[in-house]
């Protein structure tokens, strides 16, 4: 019931082609390939991508640990870094949701207004490409690839994301096989993954089992952290499809760049 979820902060506006990439700290530090993939997809959609180097982290680990002061500090930093840009795009529903949902709740007065303004132009990648730009066709070709989609929680429930990643994949020719309970949490939950490791693994097993039952080649999603947790569990237990960010799947299926990506 997407309409029950939080209303979108902004109605689709005229295509803003200059976008600032918010890579997220996880991508920056651990999975840079997803960042590269994100840039390639945005450029394939005709965007000019900028990377404000002052960016760090959205502050989600702090708020979720019950440390709003630390989260507020990072929220202010995020706003200062990104407010000059017309559009801010992140390859993570969770980080985009942090900006949308918590910044205005953490900040007061003038800061709250600035937070509101920044939230209105902050997008999750698939949402930006499909809903904001109206460019689901990026030239990627995934015919013959079967994919099952996990609806990562914060993108789903705070941003109302449901169809955009599927639209990108389907437009590229991938076959989507829905798993049982695609909206059930994968069990990552930030610090929960280590604090309540047993429950976390239990939920990952459910997700991998549901994903595996579809027979899909890949289990994909829009949140790198969830995928790291799922893929880590899959490598441990040997059950379930390979867990890959949809940006990586799509970018790998784009026509090759003029020179191979340096590794």
């Amino acid at each position: 019931m997407p309409d029950e979820r939080e209303p979108r902060a902004s109605a689709p506006r005229a295509a803003a082609r200059r976008v600032a990439l918010f890579a997220t700290c996880v991508v920056d530090a651990v999975t840079p390939d997803t960042g590269v993939a994100t840039v390639r997809l945005l450029e394939a959609a005709g965007c000019v991508v900028e990377f404000p180097v002052a960016q760090t982290c959205c502050g989600q680990p702090a708020i979720n640990s019950g440390e709003p002061e630390a989260a507020t500090r990072l929220a202010r930093h995020f706003i200062e870094v990104f407010e000059p840009f017309d559009a801010i795009v992140a390859p993570s529903g969770s980080c985009a949701a942090m900006v949308h949902h918590w910044y205005t709740r953490l900040l007061d007065g003038g800061w709250r207004q600035r937070a509101q303004a920044v939230a209105e132009k902050t997008f999750e990648l698939s949402d930006y490409l499909v809903e904001e730009l109206g460019r689901p066709d990026l030239g990627a070709r995934l015919e013959g690839t079967t994919v099952t989609v996990h609806d990562a929680c914060h993108g789903l429930r705070n941003l109302g994301l449901k169809s955009s990643a599927r639209t990108l994949l389907e437009t590229a020719g991938a076959t989507i096989v829905e798993m049982a309970e695609p909206e059930m949490c994968c069990g990552f939950g930030g610090t929960f993954a280590v604090k309540y490791e047993e429950i976390s693994a239990h939920l990952a097993d459910d997700k991998l089992e549901h994903g595996g039952a579809t027979g899909a080649r890949y289990l994909t999603s829009g949140d790198g952290a969830c995928l790291m947790h799922l893929e880590g569990r899959r490598r441990r237990t040997g059950t379930g499809p390979e867990c890959v960010h949809f940006a990586d799947l799509l970018a790998d299926a784009l026509p090759a760049p003029t020179r191979p990506v340096a590794r």
Binding site: R157, M184, G190, T191
Partner: peptide, 10 residues
């Protein structure tokens, strides 16, 4: 107890 949550929002 409040920490025993993934904050999934379901």
């Amino acid at each position: 107890l409040p920490f025993a949550s993934t904050l999934c929002g379901a």
